[in-house]
Computed example of a mutant assay.
Amino acid sequence: MHPQAGTPCANPVDLLGKLTRRDDPRSPRCRCHGLASILLRALAAMLAGAIGRWADAAPQHTLTRLGCRITCPALGARTTPSPATLRRVLLALAPDALAALTRPDTLPAVAVGGKTLRGSATPTDPAVHLLPVLTLDRRLVSQVRVPEGTSEIDALAIVLDKLDLAGVVVTADALHTQTDTATHLVDEGQADYVLTVKRNQKALFDQLKALPWAQAPTLDATRHRGQGRVETRTVKVIDLGGRTAFPHAAQAERVRRHVRDLRTKKTSWTVAYAVTSLVS
Rank of each mutant, 00 (worst) to 15 (best):
M1C: 10
P3F: 04
P12V: 01
P12S: 08
G17F: 03
T20V: 15
R21F: 00
R22A: 07
D24W: 13
P25K: 14
P25C: 11
P28W: 10
C32G: 13
H33L: 04
G34P: 04
A36R: 02
A42W: 00
M46Y: 00
G49V: 04
I51H: 00
I51T: 14
A55V: 08
D56Q: 15
A57S: 14
A58M: 09
P59V: 05
H61M: 08
G67S: 03
I70T: 14
C72S: 14
C72F: 00
P73W: 07
L75H: 07
T79P: 00
T80Y: 01
L86Y: 00
R88D: 12
L91T: 14
D96F: 09
A97R: 01
L98G: 15
L101R: 04
L101T: 12
L101M: 09
T102I: 00
T106L: 01
L107W: 06
L107E: 12
P108C: 09
A111T: 12
V112F: 02
G113R: 07
G113L: 02
G114T: 13
G119I: 03
S120P: 13
S120H: 13
A121Q: 14
A121P: 01
P123A: 13
A127N: 07
V128S: 05
P132K: 08
V133Q: 08
V133G: 09
L136T: 13
D137K: 04
R138N: 15
S142I: 01
V144M: 08
V144F: 03
V144I: 11
V146K: 06
V146C: 03
E148D: 08
E148Q: 11
G149R: 10
I153S: 02
I153N: 07
I153Q: 04
D154Q: 04
D154S: 11
A155S: 15
L156R: 06
A157K: 03
A157I: 05
I158M: 03
L160V: 07
K162F: 01
L163T: 10
D164C: 08
A166C: 11
G167H: 05
V168P: 06
V170Y: 02
T171M: 11
A174N: 09
A174Y: 01
H176M: 05
T177V: 10
T177N: 06
T179F: 00
D180L: 02
T181A: 08
T181C: 13
V186Y: 00
Q190M: 11
A191Q: 10
V194L: 15
L195N: 03
L195W: 10
V197E: 12
K198Q: 09
K198H: 02
R199K: 15
N200D: 12
A203N: 11
L204C: 11
Q215H: 12
A216C: 12
T218C: 14
T218M: 04
L219R: 14
L219V: 05
A221P: 00
T222K: 08
Q227T: 01
R229P: 05
R233P: 11
T234W: 00
V235T: 14
I238A: 03
R243N: 15
A245R: 09
H248A: 14
A252K: 07
E253G: 15
V255H: 03
R256M: 06
T264M: 05
A272R: 10
Y273R: 02
A274S: 15
V275N: 13
T276F: 02
